[in-house]
Design a protein around this nucleic acid. Sequence first.
DNA 1: TGTTAGCACTCGACGACGTTGAGTGCTAAT
DNA 2: ATTAGCACTCAACGTCGTCGAGTGCTAACA
Lengths: 344, 344
Amino acid sequence: MAMDDRKFRILQAIIDDYILTAVPVGSRTISKKYDMGLSSATIRNEMSDLEELGYLDQPHVSAGRIPSAKAYRLYVDQLLQSGKLRSEESLPSYFNGRVQKMEEVIDRAAQVLSSLTQYTAVVLSPTGPRMRIRNIQLVSVSPESALVVIVTDAGVVRDSVVRVSRQLDADTLYTISRALTEALSGCTLEEACERMPVLMGRMQENAAILQSVHGYISEARDRNPHSHVGIGGASNMLSWPEYSDVEKARGFLSLLETREKLASIVAQQGDVSLTVRIGPETGVPEMSDCSIVTATYSTHTGRQGTIGVIGPTRMHYSKVMAILQAMGHQLTDLLGEPGSPERK
Amino acid sequence: MAMDDRKFRILQAIIDDYILTAVPVGSRTISKKYDMGLSSATIRNEMSDLEELGYLDQPHVSAGRIPSAKAYRLYVDQLLQSGKLRSEESLPSYFNGRVQKMEEVIDRAAQVLSSLTQYTAVVLSPTGPRMRIRNIQLVSVSPESALVVIVTDAGVVRDSVVRVSRQLDADTLYTISRALTEALSGCTLEEACERMPVLMGRMQENAAILQSVHGYISEARDRNPHSHVGIGGASNMLSWPEYSDVEKARGFLSLLETREKLASIVAQQGDVSLTVRIGPETGVPEMSDCSIVTATYSTHTGRQGTIGVIGPTRMHYSKVMAILQAMGHQLTDLLGEPGSPERK
DNA sequence: TGTTAGCACTCGACGACGTTGAGTGCTAAT
DNA sequence: ATTAGCACTCAACGTCGTCGAGTGCTAACA
């Protein structure tokens, strides 16, 4: 027995209905609501076959059937192939013209995504190998303290206060800044770390402060690559019938709180522009009944970021996929050309 | 009929028990568990009086009693006066020696607070009038774009990419940066906004880019004063029996998501170092069965921040208050003297 | 006068039980 | 190959009686 076209159509109807209602769907529902010209008995036989093939599960003997992860996978693959997504549900622009701070863009994107989809959205800041130092500034803040600002082509990666000895006045700090910038501009963070000892030897009178700067650079280098993780619509998950049980919801919510872990889960592997991971495919046991849909966007410096939506496996895939794709493009347009959000 | 000492002791016992169990407490419980040398009948009479006085509520005729907001208020005021908190539950230091980025400190503080209290913690970044510009930098990122970095004594308030015309090479940008810094250093953001037009007149050849800078400064000025809001333990709230009803939890959670609103609710009014707002006192209808306990910390620039814990009115006040106070001090120690977290 | 024992009463929580209805699998007829 | 029919299963739901924690009231007591 194999998967024929009719079985597939029935499966599709079951999935559609289940996505809509979250209630196990029975043979009568299919034969009536989706007029396939078949009686419930026939559907019943087919459903029995589909169950044997692993596409359907039955919570109880006398309940309807529920699509399995395998069924969703088939469904999504079909969606991806059929090219229906190309319709590109054109979104209005959600970013007011002005260029904003990266973090604000990310938070806003997460917020928009969650409100469009009614699921939980996660947006990861762009990451990539090409982060090079542009400028290092020591700024006097008070007689005894200064601010270290390390700027890369991806923005400010570090700003921290250090204590300085009194003889370092504004001018001296400025001189040091210039020397640092000159020596390190264009370096990656790794290279900068390696060169620092040389610099420290050359400017021994300021070794203390260079030491601090060195520390900050190496910290920035070691830091989790996703400097910012935007989350939107965490509360949406409590509306899913799947999480009417508070204990389950708790597990999910606390996962959202550990942002590094979350980022590593959501982070896109491979370079596909649209990825769907269903249930067990997420690789996270706690999320075996969730799906993650992700898309990518890229910035003018060639770095890539990820936007994602997390929902129950019973997710409105086609809608979510279309929205993510559109949003990915919108972000790429926004960040791709600095200062000109409305391109073309 | 007035509040006498015995009534107060009974009330205290009821509150203690209710905080612990979240179950309406009856007269027998008090007379047995808390040996007051009184029979349940006597307690019953007293409880009836306490109810009449408005300190107790009765969910059902045949259930025990629950402390009212008024009761908690009395309880907390007594705690505050009795000076028991002075014991100062000395916390271990939760911040590893190194000076960290302000945002990291805030997030970590929220995380620590929530895990110590098992409630939800909110930490607001310091705010205050004394934010003065220290430095403005234009950093070349690519031939066509530059990064604007605005530094104040409170750290970087803005870093955004702007598009520049090609003739603005690194040196020119540098010259502009110097001029800007010279002209605006020491100004508040308001003052800077006012002076910009003059500068633009003086440097007409670079009016475009100055225009952008002007925009960013005024944006930073208008921005919500709490640039960063750290939240910890949001998932903890799902463990409170009060929120076993998912719908209620949803309301709370979505409140946590709108950080500006949250900040304005938590933000401390007045200059008391420890504040407790109980139920209706929070001023937020959605939080009529929550309490907010806040403390303050301050930085070396004299700016004040707020740390807070949100929990059910049935909160373990004494513990939470002691922890907040200790954490407030720890943060002040950490941020009070730049570069020397371990002072004394 | 304050305290306590006793008692009738209330009412939510809980388990037992029967009913209902959606859904299934199987069989026999078309 | 499809479908009508039928027996069967089982979660959901409402009803009902029991249980027990808790109350208020009264009368006795120190």
